[in-house]
Design a binder for these strands. Structure first.
Length: 473
DNA sequence: TGAAATGTTGGGGCG
DNA sequence: ACGCCCCAACATTTC
C-alpha cells in the first residue's frame, strides 16, 4: 500500500503563522501535515498549569482556524506520536522551532536521533529568542551572571537577531484521521475560573498583535516610569503571547528599534532582554527551577510549616492590601502586574520566610504567562538566590510600596472592593485606621477584611536574622 | 527594580 | 546680637 507523502510541521511554543521559520521552510512543500502534541508525560512536574492550559486551548483553536481546521492534535509522549506518524505516512521531513526547557531539549534530541535512524530529515530553527543561549557568552566561554554586562554584550551582537519573514503557505494541508479533536486534549479546567480571563485576553496571533499595537499606541510612551504603576496601562501585556509564540520576538525587536529611539523604547527592549537572560540561565543551569543558583541559600532556614499563612497569601488574605490585590488579580485574571509580582514575592519569601519554590509552583499554576525560564529566574531574583538578584536584605515594605506605586489605592480597590470606602490615608494600612474611620467605611477587620497575618517590623527582623546565618558562606 | 538607621545641614525660635 | 536647641530635609550608611 502506498503511503501518503507528507512534510510535517510540528507546532510547539510558536503558535503563529507570521515570521515562523519552521513554517517558512515548509511553506512550499506539496503536502503539509501540521501537528500539535500535548506532551504531559515528558514534561513531568513541569507540565503546564491550569491557566496555561486554558490559554493553550484558545490559542490552538485560533491557530487551527487559520489553518483551515487542518491542525492535527495528539496527546502523549512526542516520540511515540512521531513514531506513529512516520509509520503511517511517507514522511519527507519534520521541522520545528526550538524550545529551551531542559525536558524539551532532551526529548527533542531523542526524536532527532529516531528520525535520523529512519533517514528522515529533521530540522529545528531559531525562532522565539533573539539570541540562543549558547550564542552570547563571556570571553572565557562562561555564561553571563550579571545582567548589565550581558545586555551590553547583546547590543554588540544585534546581527545575530533574525530578520522577520513571512511566507504564504502554498502546500495543501493534510488532516490526519487519527488526530483527536481539540476538546479531547481536555485543556479546560473543570472549575469555571476563567470567566474574567475571557474579558481581558484574546489568546492567539490576532490578540497578540492587538496588544502590541495598543502598547505602541499608548503604553510605550511612558513605559520607563509608567511600568511601575499597576493602575496605568503602561505595560505591554505581551507575556502570555510571547510565551506561546503568538508573536515573534524578532518582529517586536526590529519594529521598536526601527521606529522608536527614546528612553522608553530602550527600556522596553531591556525588559525583552531580561527574558533572554532567563533563558540563558535556564539553559546553562538546568536546575534553575528547583535549585538555588547561589548555593549558600541551600542552608537558608526557610519555615517548613507555614500552611495557614501560605493559604492566606494564595487567596489574597494577608491583611496587606497591595499584596492581597495582587494575589486576587492573579487568581481572577491569570495575570499580575510586574511591580506587584515583586511585592508579593518579597512578602512570601521574606516576611513569611517561605521557600521561593512554593511561590514558583503557585504562579506556575495560576499565570497565563507561566514560563519555566522566566518564572524560575524571577523567583530566584526576588528571593536573592539567583543571578544578579535583588540582595536578600532588600525587603519590600508593602505599605510603602503601596503608597508609592498605588497612591490613590485604585488598584487595591479594584481587587479588594471591601476597602473601597476607606480614605486614601489608610487604604494601604487599614489596621492603622481609627475605629470611626473603619466604621464609616464599613470595614470590619477580622470579618470582611483580615487582620495582618504578620507584623512587618518583626518579620523583617526575623528575615535579616535568618539571612545572617548563611551570609558570607 | 529598598528600607531603616544614622549623619549632616541649615533655618527659625528663643533665651 | 549671639549661641543653643529643635527638627525638617536631605545624604549616607547599613542591613
Amino acid at each position: 500500500m502506498n503511503k501518503e507523502k507528507v512534510s510535517i510541521l510540528w507546532f510547539r511554543q510558536d503558535l503563529r503563522l507570521k515570521d515562523n521559520p519552521a513554517l517558512n521552510a515548509l511553506a512550499g512543500s506539496g503536502h503539509l501535515l501540521p501537528i500539535y502534541i500535548l506532551d504531559d508525560e515528558n514534561a513531568g512536574e513541569f507540565k503546564m498549569g491550569g491557566a496555561s492550559r486554558y490559554w493553550l486551548h484558545k490559542s490552538l483553536d485560533r491557530l487551527n482556524a487559520s489553518l483551515d481546521s487542518k491542525l492535527n492534535f495528539y496527546s502523549g509522549r512526542a516520540e511515540d506520536i512521531i513514531e506513529q506518524l512516520i509509520t503511517n505516512y511517507d514522511v519527507q521531513e519534520i521541522f520545528w522551532n526550538r524550545c529551551y526547557e531542559p525536558w524539551r531539549m532532551k526529548r527533542d534530541k531523542k526524536i532527532k536521533d529516531l528520525l535520523k535512524k529512519n533517514q528522515i530529515e529533521a530540522k529545528s530553527f531559531k525562532s522565539d529568542l533573539l539570541w540562543e543561549p549558547w550564542e552570547v557568552l563571556k570571553d572565557d566561554g562562561a555564561p553571563y551572571r550579571v545582567y548589565s554586562a550581558y545586555y551590553k554584550r547583546l547590543l554588540k551582537n544585534t546581527k545575530l537577531i533574525r530578520s522577520p519573514e513571512t511566507k504564504k503557505i502554498k502546500s495543501s494541508l493534510i488532516k490526519d484521521k487519527r488526530s483527536v479533536g481539540l476538546d479531547e486534549l481536555k485543556l479546560f479546567p473543570d472549575i469555571n475560573w476563567y470567566t474574567d480571563m475571557d474579558k481581558q485576553w484574546q489568546p492567539g496571533e490576532k490578540g497578540a498583535h492587538k496588544n502590541f499595537k495598543k502598547f505602541l499606541d499608548s503604553g510605550i510612551k511612558n513605559y520607563k516610569e509608567g511600568r511601575d504603576f499597576p493602575k496605568l496601562e503602561s505595560v505591554s501585556r505581551l507575556s502570555p503571547h510571547l510565551h506561546f509564540g503568538e508573536i515573534s520576538v524578532a518582529e517586536i525587536w526590529h519594529h521598536i528599534r526601527n521606529n522608536y529611539t527614546d528612553k522608553n523604547a530602550g527600556h522596553f527592549l531591556k525588559e525583552i532582554a531580561w527574558r533572554e537572560f532567563s533563558y540563558l540561565l535556564l539553559y546553562h543551569f538546568p536546575q534553575l527551577p528547583k535549585k538555588n543558583l547561589q548555593e549558600k541559600f541551600d542552608n537558608f532556614p526557610w519555615k517548613s510549616k507555614n500552611k495557614k499563612q501560605f493559604d492566606a497569601w494564595k487567596k489574597g488574605n494577608t491583611g496587606y492590601p497591595i499584596v492581597d490585590a495582587g494575589m486576587r488579580e492573579l487568581w481572577q485574571t491569570g495575570y499580575m502586574h510586574n511591580r506587584v509580582r515583586m511585592i508579593v514575592g518579597s512578602f512570601l519569601v521574606k516576611n513569611l520566610l517561605m521557600h521561593w519554590r512554593h511561590g514558583e509552583r503557585w504562579f506556575w499554576d495560576c499565570l497565563l504567562d507561566a514560563d519555566l525560564a522566566n518564572n524560575s529566574a524571577s523567583w530566584q531574583w526576588v528571593a536573592g538566590s539567583g543571578a544578579d538578584a535583588a540582595p536578600y536584605f532588600r525587603i519590600f515594605n508593602p505599605i510603602l510600596q503601596g503608597e508609592r506605586f498605588d497612591k490613590d489605592g485604585d488598584y487595591v480597590k479594584k481587587y479588594c472592593p471591601e476597602l473601597k470606602e476607606l480614605p486614601n490615608k489608610y487604604i494601604h494600612k487599614p489596621f492603622e485606621a481609627p475605629m470611626d474611620v473603619l466604621l464609616e467605611a464599613d470595614v470590619k477587620l477580622g470579618e470582611n477584611y483580615p487582620h495582618p497575618i504578620v507584623n512587618l517590623g518583626e518579620s523583617r527582623d526575623a528575615a535579616l536574622d535568618a539571612y545572617e546565618e548563611i551570609k558570607g558562606k
